[in-house]
Design a protein around this nucleic acid. Sequence first.
RNA 1: GCCUUGGUGGUGUAGGGGCUAUCAUGCGGGCCUGUCGAGCCCGCGACUCGGGUUCAAAUCCCGGCCAAGGCGCCA
Length: 439
Amino acid sequence: MEYLLRDLRRTHYTGSVTEDVIDEEVTIMGWVHEIRDLGGIIFLLIRDIEGRIQVTAPSKKLPAEILEDIRALRKESVVAIKGKVQSSSKAPNGVEILPSEITVLNMADQPLPMDPTEKVKAEIDTRLNSRFLDLRKTGVSAIFKIRNQMFKSIREYFADNNIIEINTPKLVASATEGGTELFPITYFEREAFLGQSPQLYKQMMMSAGFDKVYEIGQIFRAEEHDTLRHLNEAISIDMEASFMDDTDVKNILNDMMVKLINDVNDNCSNELDILDYKLEVPQGKFQDIDYDEAVDLINARGIEMEYGEDLSREAEKVLGDAMDDFYFLSGWPTEIKPFYVMPCEDQSQKCHAFDLMYKNLELSSGATRIHQYDLLVEQMIAKDLSPESFESYLKAFKYGMPPHAGWGLGADRLNMVLTGVENIRECVLFPRDRHRLTP
RNA sequence: GCCUUGGUGGUGUAGGGGCUAUCAUGCGGGCCUGUCGAGCCCGCGACUCGGGUUCAAAUCCCGGCCAAGGCGCCA
């Protein structure tokens, strides 16, 4: 038995062991997915990031030591296998490897805390407790391959539109935009908090003249929610643009979503197949419904709702059923939106805020922001916030803040939409919720 | 935080006052030269915790802990 890599290196991933390399000697590295010992012949399935390949060991053609090594293997152990690629109509992909050297890089203990071959299903709690094993499953890793494409496309879109990537602090003093509970932490001898959103910082970047910015980063909310679509640590995709209003940034969001979904369809068809999910590409402009109309529609469908309220879960569901998959919900009451949202000129009880919905799931919230110092202070006072505690933010509005607008988009929720999974925890490697802080 | 349902081998389950506690997968051993959810044979391994009712509790009752789903909060 051998445990060190030494000068051993992989020559091929399983995906490139194809008919093109027949008769070549290859070295693959990965996990022992399955061992089928038929006595005179043993089949091994070796798995790596790209898939699986069959290693075939007929006893009469191979030295006894190799057969012994194979019989000593345990499932999910990590191995390096050197061997010759041969064509076989009986092998899963038409090719198999005849091993000449097997190196065990790490033997796995048994029994495993869950079954990574998906023969016996496991509950989400069991799966998350052994997430490293759960993630070895093709159906689980497919979600994260799509997630990777999602961020790649989004970054491409922003880069193509000259939107600058920024990073803002996640350790913040106290001033918050309200609305949510924060996680308190100890910052040397002071109290501080984990950031709920980059909102105030990305707005300050407008005053800094960066014109259009975006950030993809962690946000933290200390709410005791317990649903399939909330997390206490999430990834937010935030953008903010100067000299634009809500209509302009809605268009940006709309275009980005269409590009993104096309990209996922084009580049992740294999992963979508594994998940057995068909991703519909939205056509052109998303439907856009005014808040007032939405309230009427919800009431007309038998769910009671007052003007000025936020949507209940039931209301979201009937609205989602009535609309296209993607739609904007616009013209929200000023009362229930944050202080920095620009009220409408003609009727200040409504504001230039919108949500992007997918069926009954809120994906994004955005708005034209207030850029005038006096109005901003007025709105803060109206929401019982103290302008003194926002001093460092407000300062940016006194010396030349351009009109601007922006949005924040929940990356994990977007990942749900792209993969069709129903529990947001499925879209996060190591989710943080009300009850879970490990692994 | 509230409501509902649940907690049985490593995993997923059946059972629901008295059984040697079901099945699958897994694990250990044996047979087998074309498996591909391999097959066949033998074996291993479990009733969430604390009280209570009862001759007898995995099963009924009360409480705790934990989980799943729904709601609320929130995005």
